[in-house]
Nucleic acid binder design. Structure first.
Lengths: 331, 331
DNA sequence: AAGCGCTATTTAACGAGTTAAATAAATAAT
DNA sequence: ATTATTTATTTAACTCGTTAAATAGCGCTT
């Protein structure tokens, strides 16, 4: 049986209320009592029962993190950012993934907030809909969306338009004018923004936009890239470069298949990815790509949500972070 | 204010005790009352407060997962295995990482069990010491170690000796007899087992063991591999193959540097890794390696711990899983 | 009508804390 | 010396469920 406030109170000859006040550093406690209680607490190796405390205070000191899928390097890196910052913040992270779940994000969230009385939620998702987000807002638990701009909820995201623009600008600067573009059907708003950035860059440089150069894959894995290479090869006019806002793994798939078919990268086909996942440095040629500040997004999210929980911040926070164009060998 | 048992009780004209019994499917409730209460509970969208319930039952329905570092693909994959199985088990996962923490694993665990009243703990760590593990055992909270064999606590691990043997057998079978071996200083017991397997294989085939072919890196990243290549190049006699029990990322680093220095892999230098991380398929040539069943380890761990918590299993469980030798291009 | 056995429901204590209000003791002000 | 104020501590209610024990209601015996 773990030590409770009562045990300490008994030994110290005071009430458990007094002990509680000492433990929580409340005022109006004599120095003498405080010392005595603290000493006993230490002796007995006391840890407050967070469950009981949570019941009384209606605070759980826990933050739910809802991720779509732990198989994604992007998600894991954001999570890493959250965790490494959270170290000093002392909230417990409850981890949930929604892959293959019958519940929607918002249902899960609702259940969490009622069942677990979580103090806040971070949702890592680029595809969540506005309707879903409204449910988050209505639950009156601080929540943040990572990876997607939205108007009704706090969020941290990157300037995808600019990120894509940087990529296209670079390729055009290298003399390319037939640039295929591989988007993903499962990335929602950020994908639209990237495609807009791609088009804006073309327009700014007077390069004609060609619908036939736009390819869409259903997912964002390496296999998708391998499969899509055939489509690229069949394109007329033949592209000399491919921008892959669908993400680095797709880009890597394309590189793999291109090499297998003896097309030199970047000489025959330049390739630019998106995300800057760890694998971008592994592939040969290493992948030129648009880096998303994943750790920073996680860092911002956890800091902001804790600030909200603790009342240091209020109002709608929309944080846009810049991407960074990383030049390597593939373009 | 979320709905409570009392709210339902009032509307149903019964006591909250009755409602509690209905919600928990206890016997001796009239069908009529049960129906009425359930209907109201549904109408009010009631979710039991797990915190309050936990206080009463001394069960939190939460499992702590302690990981050394989310930057490791190995760890993330095990975590993924835990999560995807846990879906049907309905325990909440509290995630903790110990990287850069002042607390040891066992201290963290002790705190968790007292503060959060977690029902069980999964520790993913190959390096935890026996002394540490004894503290786990003493806390009387079901706990499991993933990735390391141990005698005092439940665990799930792989047959590292056999895994390494498979690798060395394969290389010897390919005609190699000067096989360098790159170990890691931070992998503890499993590393010793792997090295033992390597030696056993040499011995079994009458290939002389040479201490000078043994290299140790401090960590397990790609950079370590790049750095270690110089050492390999300097070895006398010059190895024709390298076995890298330190892990795939180190092996990948070696491949990268080998290629840069225009040594062909596998013709000039065959390379075999350990783990089978996602990156093993990205590198060119793709990496021949010893696969650890990461998802399966996670799956076993969560299932076993839940079985222990719910009393379906007891006694010390030591689960050894087989590795699988994956032949790709690098050897 | 009294007694018995069931079932359905309520009562009340408990889990381990927090906190507003009450009280006691000590100190300061008049 | 008496009252007012301050400081330290306790009382008691509260968080939201669970659960053992008590009780009420009802049909059956005898």
């Amino acid at each position: 049986m773990p030590v409770t406030l009562k045990d300490i109170a008994k030994r110290a000859g005071v009430t458990s209320a007094t002990v509680s006040m000492v433990i929580n550093n409340k005022p109006n406690i004599s120095e003498e009592t405080r010392k005595r209680v603290m000493k006993i607490a230490k002796e007995l190796n006391y840890y407050p029962n967070v469950i009981a405390r949570g019941l009384a205070t209606r605070r759980s000191n826990a933050i739910g993190v809802i991720v779509p899928n732990l198989a994604s390097s992007f998600v894991v890196r954001v999570l890493q950012g959250i965790k490494s910052t959270n170290r000093d913040l002392d909230y417990t992270v409850l981890l949930f993934d929604t892959v293959g779940q019958r519940e929607s994000e918002s249902q899960l969230f609702q259940r969490l907030s009622r069942e677990r009385r979580i103090d806040g939620v971070i949702l890592i998702s680029s595809t969540v809909t506005d309707d879903e987000l409204n449910i988050f807002r209505d639950e009156s638990v601080p929540s943040m969306v990572v990876a997607r701009k939205c108007t009704t909820l706090d969020c941290v995201y990157v300037n995808n338009e600019q990120g894509a623009r940087d990529a296209a600008d670079y390729l055009i600067g290298k003399g390319h004018s037939v640039i295929a573009c591989v988007g993903s059907a499962k990335l929602g708003l950020p994908m639209e923004e990237r495609l807009a950035g791609y088009r804006a860059s073309l327009a700014a440089h007077g390069v004609p936009f060609r619908q036939e150069l736009m390819i869409t894959v259903d997912d964002d894995g390496m296999a998708d890239g391998v499969a899509v290479f055939e489509k690229i090869r069949a394109l007329q006019p033949a592209p000399t470069a491919v921008f892959v806002p669908a993400g680095d793994m797709v880009a890597i798939g394309i590189i793999k298949e291109a090499k297998k078919q003896e097309r030199r990268v970047p000489q025959d086909l330049a390739i630019v990815g998106y995300d800057d996942l760890p694998a971008a440095e592994v592939i040969e040629p290493s992948l030129t790509t648009v880096r998303q500040p994943k750790l920073e997004m996680g860092d911002y999210a956890i800091n902001m949500i804790v600030d909200k929980i603790e009342g240091r911040e209020s109002g709608l926070k929309q944080k846009e972070l810049p991407t960074k164009f990383i030049i390597r060998e593939s373009a």
